[in-house]
Amino acid sequence: MALLEVKNLEVCYGVIRALKGISFEVNQGEIVSLIGANGAGKTTTMQSIMGLIPIKSGTVTYDGQVINKIPGHKLVPMGMSQVPEGRRVFQEMTVYENLVLGAYAQKDKKKIKDDIDEICTRFPRLGERKKQVAGTLSGGEQQMLAMGRAMMSHPKLLMLDEPSMGLSPLLVDQVFEIIKDYHKSGVTILLVEQNAKKALSISDRAYVLETGAITMEGNAADLLNDESVKKAYLGE
């Protein structure tokens, strides 16, 4: 069953059609990637799903419910969580406060504390830097914080927008290991990436987005071996 289903999604910035009616779905338990070049509409897709930018037409269905008209902040308690492009951690707040905000929908303080402890075991670096202001963390640490913060709401569907952006190859590997590991705990993943090779290597299925339209879709393994994908996105 599809946990997330996007149908004929159209988003416009003024007269520019950033998304020209795209359709895709993410099934329960899958890792699905949306790959494409800069400006293809990947982030627009992610932001419109979470209600950060208005949808012109089309529907987004989550867990059997049409969510286009639901205000974005109500989607978090429903089990959707997003790690935004550029991490967007709260720079002036500490690591701890960022994590507490991730659990905004949770009112049980004891539970929040336990969850933070759990996140700190998953990301030991965050545990060491709990009291540090997030703006002083390195890029990699901020990515970990953004991921930990998104996990604090116990999502059923975790959406990650360019988690590898600006990170060293070693850190990119680490980030993808964490995503794989988190997926094993039963969370469905929607991943947006420019690093197509990495994304395809951990995904079940993938869609190729080009200037606001989906041009290819299929099993990740098939796409990895596809000649045109290789040429355009894998640099082979």
């Binding site: 205000p71 974005g72 997003q82 967007r88 709260f90 707040m93 998104a150 709401s153």
Partner: peptide, 24 residues
């Protein structure tokens, strides 16, 4: 307080605050 922290978050980044489930 929870509301106070939400205010700080909104002041810093409205979009990210909404992603936390905060009613901006």
């Amino acid at each position: 307080t929870r509301t106070g922290r939400a205010m700080q978050a909104v002041s810093e980044d409205k979009g990210a605050a909404q992603l936390m489930g905060i009613n901006v």
